[in-house]
Simulated scan of single mutants.
Amino acid sequence: MTHDWVPGRAAGDDSDLLQILGPDGQVTRRDLPCPGDDVVREALRLMLLSRALDEKCIRLHRQGRLGLYAPVLGQEAAVVGSHLAIDPAVDWLVPASREQPAMLRHGWPLDRLFASLLGRIEAARIPDDVRMLPRQQAIATQLPHAVGIAWASSIRRREGVTLAYCGDGATSEGDFHEACNLAGVMGVALVLVIINNQYAISTPVSKQTRAPRLADRARGYGFPGVAVDGNDLFAVYEATRQAVERARTGQGPTMIEAVTYRIGFHNTSDNSSLYREPGEVAEARQRDPVARLTTYAVTAGLVDRDTLDAQENEVRAEVDAAFERASSYPAPGPEEAFRHVFAD
């Protein structure tokens, strides 16, 4: 966690970001460990599953068969790389609004995810044995809850770490600052991942803050912050692994800023062409995290093209089957508005 910002860094200069796997799929840092082969294979499958889920949900929304959906497109390495560093059996996950692959890996069945998008309330419930909060659409309000979970775990002497996500827009909310301050004061076992995808809906980061890096804010709360190349699964995984190790050994919270780019729209109600230039998006596609990891995996002999093709077909079939199951679940009636609200 020594990648501090150097005063005078030029705008757009990413030389301060921790990077292990370059855009060409080649390792750029030999002094830092790469994830094991099994981790890379699991990461690649989760990222392909995430892409298949995005494609399916966008298509269903366009057909009027699915509600609002926020794609993960372009942010897969930031989400998957960080989640692979925790243990769903003992650790808590507190997502924001577009961490679908992390939620699936943590134990939320794919058909239940679809049920939530279809409004099938009871079928969408997170299983009781899954240590995870629901997705949060109200910006940053999940963060005080994440600190509360981590603090409660400490009081109850539980070993688990809490991994929480938020976007760059959430760092402009009061709940973000209150949560970070309490986390620092109490020294809780929290890993906070800021997925800086450059836009809070249509507001760019440059109009949200004058801070050179969002991770620099961690200093004000008394714990480490590190900015990483959010399109580099290896860098995200390593930074999170170190942060989880710190948390498990009682050294308190860590803030990780994963600098990435939201290639797709904010959600299916958004027209991102109104506030972004086509060239900007095209340039971001050159840093596609899935293509980067795929190149590495093929070059390293972990997979071949035939295997990848088969895996893409497999995850698409998995997504289709999960949607069909979710579609068969009963739709809620008016009484559902009162269920779990009143005692009688």
Results as ranks from 00 to 15, higher is better:
residue 4 D to A: 13
residue 6 V to A: 14
residue 9 R to E: 11
residue 9 R to D: 10
residue 11 A to P: 08
residue 16 D to H: 13
residue 20 I to A: 03
residue 25 G to R: 06
residue 27 V to A: 07
residue 39 V to R: 09
residue 42 E to R: 13
residue 44 L to T: 06
residue 45 R to D: 10
residue 46 L to H: 06
residue 50 S to D: 09
residue 50 S to M: 06
residue 62 R to M: 07
residue 63 Q to D: 15
residue 64 G to E: 05
residue 70 A to S: 05
residue 79 V to A: 10
residue 84 L to K: 02
residue 86 I to W: 00
residue 103 M to Q: 15
residue 107 G to H: 04
residue 107 G to R: 00
residue 112 R to I: 14
residue 118 L to K: 03
residue 134 P to T: 08
residue 139 I to M: 12
residue 140 A to M: 02
residue 144 P to C: 08
residue 147 V to I: 10
residue 153 S to C: 13
residue 158 R to L: 15
residue 162 T to H: 04
residue 163 L to E: 00
residue 168 D to G: 04
residue 170 A to S: 14
residue 170 A to M: 07
residue 172 S to W: 05
residue 173 E to A: 06
residue 175 D to T: 05
residue 178 E to G: 13
residue 190 L to M: 07
residue 203 T to S: 08
residue 208 Q to M: 12
residue 209 T to A: 10
residue 216 D to K: 06
residue 221 Y to D: 04
residue 223 F to Q: 01
residue 226 V to K: 05
residue 230 G to V: 04
residue 230 G to P: 01
residue 231 N to R: 13
residue 234 F to D: 00
residue 243 A to I: 03
residue 246 R to V: 05
residue 253 P to V: 06
residue 253 P to E: 05
residue 255 M to H: 05
residue 259 V to L: 15
residue 268 T to W: 09
residue 276 R to Q: 09
residue 276 R to F: 11
residue 281 V to M: 07
residue 284 A to S: 03
residue 286 Q to E: 14
residue 286 Q to M: 10
residue 287 R to N: 14
residue 292 R to S: 05
residue 294 T to N: 08
residue 298 V to M: 09
residue 298 V to L: 14
residue 300 A to I: 04
residue 303 V to Y: 06
residue 305 R to L: 15
residue 321 A to E: 10
residue 326 A to R: 08
residue 328 S to M: 11
residue 332 P to Q: 01
residue 336 E to P: 00
residue 338 F to A: 08
